[in-house]
Design a binder for these strands. Sequence first.
DNA 1: GTGAAAGCGCTAACAC
DNA 2: GTGTTAGCGCTTTCAC
Lengths: 337, 337
Amino acid sequence: MSTIKDVARIAGVSIATVSRVVNKGPKVGEKTRNRVLKIMQEIGYMPNANARALVTQKNTTIGVVIPDLTDPFFASLAHGVDKIAREKNMQVLLSTGLISESSERQAINLLLERRCDAVVIHSKKLSDDELVELSKRVPGLILIDRFIERIKHRCVWLDNAEGGKLAARHLLAMAHNSFACITSQYEIDDPLLRLQGFKDGILDAGFTLENKLIAKQEPTLQGGEIAAQELLSQNIPFSALFVYNDAMAIGAISTFEDNGFRVPQDISVIGFDDVLLSRYSRPKLTTLNYPIEDMAANAALLALEYRESPEQYSAPEGLKYLPSLVTRESTIRNKSR
Amino acid sequence: MSTIKDVARIAGVSIATVSRVVNKGPKVGEKTRNRVLKIMQEIGYMPNANARALVTQKNTTIGVVIPDLTDPFFASLAHGVDKIAREKNMQVLLSTGLISESSERQAINLLLERRCDAVVIHSKKLSDDELVELSKRVPGLILIDRFIERIKHRCVWLDNAEGGKLAARHLLAMAHNSFACITSQYEIDDPLLRLQGFKDGILDAGFTLENKLIAKQEPTLQGGEIAAQELLSQNIPFSALFVYNDAMAIGAISTFEDNGFRVPQDISVIGFDDVLLSRYSRPKLTTLNYPIEDMAANAALLALEYRESPEQYSAPEGLKYLPSLVTRESTIRNKSR
DNA sequence: GTGAAAGCGCTAACAC
DNA sequence: GTGTTAGCGCTTTCAC
């Protein structure tokens, strides 16, 4: 691939001039400019972004760390960042660290080695301390879906407990009085807080959640199917089910129906996330909207700002989002007595 | 951020030695190595990937051009590439060009400026000529979901017409005899070939497709809803519907049910792509499996191979994939006489 | 308006 | 084993 030197040689000018043309810099004679432009065109010259990044110390790249792209939730996250990247004429560098401490660390390191201008990180496994340390070294680093008090200005997160509460109140308002829950088996904040919020919510009305009616599995469609089976096998009736996320909820509904239980007539089900799927599953899923795309876009914006002025925090309290209830067809007023 | 020089200075060695340590090169004394390692650790040194890419002429990056990440189909594509990237200790650089000629071109150019080792491109708008030209300049370039005879060794694609035929045969085998079709409004190969294949398929049994019963819309859930309304408003009965993709199919089913038509009892519907959604929608969607993740992974592999040995085509005929029928619940034997 | 030259952080000969 | 040095392709003073 040709370089700036080739262009300069053929055009009979110095590389400085070519550089000025490429960067639309000032003070280049009309004639020279056109000649250089023409030659660049002819030999198919493309400036080497790596070389440029090396000298300018910025490479128009936003890094994203997510576990995986198959999960629509994370695809939305990446898309939110990409949206901003496009606006700013930047690009997204993906670093997928499946969920393990070392792979998350490595995914982040790869982005840092690339000297990404900004980094949006979805990390569940790394310790608070490590993340705090990291944030000191990297100004344009934002944590998404995670809250760490010490560096809250670097955090963009959702109030999960509030989501659990909203779910509880919705079910309560529908006169439900016996509850079950399907949650993620991972002992991280999100499921823990959602569950806690839900428990708190029903407790306000004097209800509790039996431990036997809490099923934990992988937070996937398949996990939801298995969890629903576990619940059914307990042979304890319940009229309403709070599920960790939409994927699990849809998996669970699938299992219920295969076993002769109708949703919502026999069991009301409420999910979490409001992914596209939830709008087109049958029955349409009642769920809590998780504005992840928006959050990711704002995280990217924030990262970019911090990278520009590392001392000046435009969001000193961080960005906290609230989930909101989306009532569709999978929940219904409790008829049983 | 600290550089190799800092490490060298503090450790009291030359930068060459540090470089050797970083690259696990040979001939470094045990003691020196440990000292250097320790210092790198202490000052949090991370090698600058841009500088390295500049001198080695490779940057462990696979570029991907897709329209968008919100579409699960493209997310799967990106994931397929990412899978290979992870295997090879590389990373994915995303370049989203919404569907327009100039944005596609720009998305590709950005990747080339970065000197990606390999590039997997999903391009629908660029001309054959431009792509052929491009492929000459870039050895590690593979086109996915597109077939260009002149550079077929660079193509990884699906036999769309065959998919249409398979759909037709399935419906015919179910005794259907009146057909409608919902397709994408874009005049590109995929919808055209699928439709042609379908028409050919039913023609073999002596049936034809009425023009009035071909609805064209955006290839999205919303597009499917609208298209279904258009079909319904024609007031021409049909027992089976072939839809361009699963998203549209699910949108269409949604509209049908909202209008009192049951699927599959009143109308059998077959989709295309076999995205995750299709497995969990109600009714579960009969569709044609499009092994996009696999295809993308192999496209990435092929791109990497070609980049290594530009003259030697391990797939001189390109990689052609066949869709396969996945029978689920949205199609049923035709009962109406 | 244009060119010469220094240097971004690194690798890879080539010396010693 | 370790150091010196010449670039990789580019931007950016500083001269002229």
